[in-house]
């Protein structure tokens, strides 16, 4: 039997690792990867809660979360390409001016 607390602990650890990645790196792509890791932690919570309460709703929301993530990644990667064309760099510290 899997303990519900342990599933939640795995999800929490995953979320904290993603947060560390966002805070640690200066490259925009690595920051995006950190966001992905955090979203995966959230979807693990949804699926574990769905199994714990024996309800379908958690899995439905995990699927919707996946679709929303796909939309977010599409826009974010388009923005990465835009920033690259703008300044030829992806270091987040370089983008510190409001106008150009």
């Amino acid at each position: 039997m899997i303990s519900f607390g342990h599933a939640l602990a795995f999800a929490g650890a995953l979320f904290v690792l993603g947060l560390t990645c966002v805070l640690l790196h200066r490259q925009i792509l690595m920051i995006l990867i950190g966001v992905e890791i955090m979203l995966n932690g959230a979807s693990l919570v949804f699926v574990a809660a769905s199994a714990y309460w024996q309800q379908v709703d958690g899995q439905v929301f995990a699927l919707l979360l996946m679709a929303i993530t796909a939309a977010e990644v599409a826009v974010a990667l388009a923005m990465v390409v835009y920033l690259w064309r703008r300044k030829r760099t992806l270091v987040a510290d370089e983008f510190n001016r409001m106008r150009g």
């Binding site: 303990s3 519900f4 607390g5 714990y52």
Partner: peptide, 11 residues
């Protein structure tokens, strides 16, 4: 709730 077990579940 930490000790609660997840029962067998298949959707």
């Amino acid at each position: 709730m930490a000790g609660q077990q997840i029962d067998d579940f298949y959707l």
